[in-house]
Amino acid sequence: VTLFVALYDYEARTEDDLSFHKGEKFQILNSSEGDWWEARSLTTGETGYIPSNYAAPV
């Protein structure tokens, strides 16, 4: 399992994006889409796309 942590807060701009807060942890589901990764929040259980430059490996 690849775990990442949010470096900044992010507010979803589309219904496919995932809103999150700094410090929140994610499981990365798909990182082959370039700058946007499909991720599941370990806090909320929700799935959506996150900007890859807002996350770092745990």
Rank of each mutant, 00 (worst) to 15 (best):
I50Y: 02
D35M: 11
F26C: 05
N53K: 13
Q27L: 15
N30T: 08
N53A: 14
G23N: 05
L3W: 11
N53H: 13
R40P: 01
V1E: 13
A12V: 02
S31L: 13
Y10A: 01
F26H: 00
V5T: 06
W36I: 07
I28S: 01
R13T: 12
T2K: 12
L29E: 05
T43Q: 09
G45D: 05
K22V: 10
G34K: 12
P51V: 02
W37K: 02
V1S: 13
D35W: 09
Y54D: 01
D35K: 10
V5L: 07
F26T: 00
T14C: 15
A39P: 00
T47F: 08
Q27E: 14
Y49E: 01
Y49A: 05
S41T: 04
R40V: 10
Y49S: 06
G45F: 08
F20D: 00
E33W: 11
L7I: 09
E15A: 14
K22I: 08
E11G: 05
S32V: 11
E24C: 06
S32R: 11
A56F: 08
E15Y: 09
E33C: 14
V58F: 12
L3A: 06
T43V: 10
S52F: 10
A39W: 02
A6I: 03
K22F: 05
E15H: 12
F26K: 00
H21I: 12
G45E: 04
N53L: 09
G45Q: 07
D16W: 15
E15P: 14
V5N: 02
H21D: 06
E33Y: 11
F4I: 06
T47L: 09
P57G: 05
W36R: 15
L18V: 04
T14H: 14
V58R: 03
E15L: 12
V58E: 09
T43M: 10
P51I: 04
A12R: 08
N30K: 09
A6F: 02
W36M: 11
T44W: 02
D17F: 15
I50A: 00
Y10K: 01
W37Y: 09
A56M: 11
D35F: 13
I50N: 01
S32K: 11
S41N: 13
N30E: 07
I28K: 03
S52L: 06
T2Y: 12
E24R: 01
K25P: 06
A55V: 15
E15Q: 12
Y49L: 14
L29T: 06
V1R: 11
G34Y: 09
E11A: 10
F4K: 02
Y54K: 04
R40A: 04
V58K: 04
L42K: 03
E15R: 11
N53Y: 12
E46F: 11
K22P: 03
D9P: 06
F26D: 00
P57D: 04
L3T: 09
L42A: 05
L7V: 06
F20S: 01
D9N: 08
N30G: 10
E33K: 14
G34L: 11
T2R: 14
K25C: 13
K25A: 07
Y49H: 08
S31N: 12
F4T: 03
A39I: 05
S52W: 14
L18R: 01
F26L: 11
E11R: 09
L7G: 02
L7N: 03
D9T: 07
N53G: 14
A12F: 03
A12S: 11
D35T: 10
A6R: 00
D17T: 15
V5I: 13
N53P: 06
D16Y: 15
W36Q: 06
V1G: 13
D16E: 13
S41Y: 03
K25E: 09
V5A: 05
G23A: 03
W37N: 01
E15N: 12
G34A: 13
G48N: 01
Y10W: 10
A39Q: 00
K25F: 15
F4H: 06
T2E: 11
W36C: 07
Y8F: 12
D9L: 04
R40L: 12
L42V: 09
E11Y: 09
A12G: 12
F20R: 00
L42D: 03
S31E: 09
E24G: 02
L42F: 07
G34D: 12
P57H: 06
S52H: 08
G48T: 01
T47P: 01
F20G: 09
L29S: 05
I50R: 01
A12N: 04
E46L: 15
T14I: 06
G48E: 00
I50E: 00
D17P: 01
E38M: 15
S19W: 03
E11N: 10
E38Q: 13
K22Q: 09
Y49N: 08
L29Q: 05
T14E: 08
E24A: 06
S41C: 06
F4Y: 15
T43P: 01
S31F: 15
N53I: 09
Y49F: 13
N53R: 12
H21K: 15
T44E: 01
F26E: 00
A56Y: 09
E38L: 15
A6G: 04
F4G: 03
E15F: 10
W37M: 08
D16T: 14
V5E: 09
P51L: 07
I50V: 06
A39F: 03
A39K: 00
G34W: 09
E33P: 12
Y10P: 00
T44Q: 02
S19R: 04
T47E: 08
A56K: 09
Y8L: 08
Q27N: 07
A39Y: 02
G48Y: 04
Y10D: 00
T44G: 02
S31G: 10
E15V: 11
S52P: 07
R40Y: 11
F4Q: 02
E15D: 12
S19M: 03
W37P: 00
G34S: 13
T2G: 12
V5H: 05
P51D: 04
G45R: 04
V58A: 09
E38C: 15
D9F: 05
Y54I: 06
G45S: 05
P57R: 06
V1P: 12
S52E: 04
S19Q: 04
P57S: 07
R13N: 09
G23R: 02
W36K: 11
V58M: 12
D16G: 15
I28Y: 02
S32Y: 10
K25M: 15
G34V: 11
W36G: 03
R13P: 07
F4D: 00
F26A: 00
F26P: 00
W37S: 02
K25S: 07
D16H: 15
Y8S: 06
Y54N: 02
Y10V: 01
D17A: 15
Y10Q: 01
S31Y: 13
S31P: 12
L18C: 01
G23I: 02
T43N: 09
D16C: 15
A55D: 02
P51F: 06
T47N: 05
S19H: 07
D9Y: 05
K22A: 12
E33L: 14
A56V: 14
D35P: 10
T2D: 11
A56I: 13
P57W: 06
T43A: 11
E11I: 14
E24D: 15
V1I: 13
S52G: 07
L29I: 12
F26G: 01
P51H: 08
L3I: 15
D35I: 10
Q27R: 08
I50H: 00
V58L: 14
P51Y: 08
V5S: 04
E46C: 14
F20H: 00
Y49C: 11
L29Y: 07
S32T: 13
A39R: 00
L18Q: 01
E38K: 13
S31W: 14
A55Q: 04
A56P: 02
D35N: 09
I28Q: 01
I28R: 04
N53D: 10
A6T: 04
D17S: 14
F20M: 10
F4C: 08
L18W: 05
S19T: 10
S32N: 11
F4S: 03
P57E: 07
S41K: 14
G34H: 11
T14V: 06
W36H: 07
T43Y: 09
K22G: 03
A39V: 15
V5F: 10
S31C: 14
T47A: 07
T2A: 11
E11V: 14
G48K: 03
P51A: 03
E24Y: 04
A39E: 00
S52V: 09
P51E: 02
N53C: 14
V58G: 05
L7H: 03
K25I: 15
I50T: 01
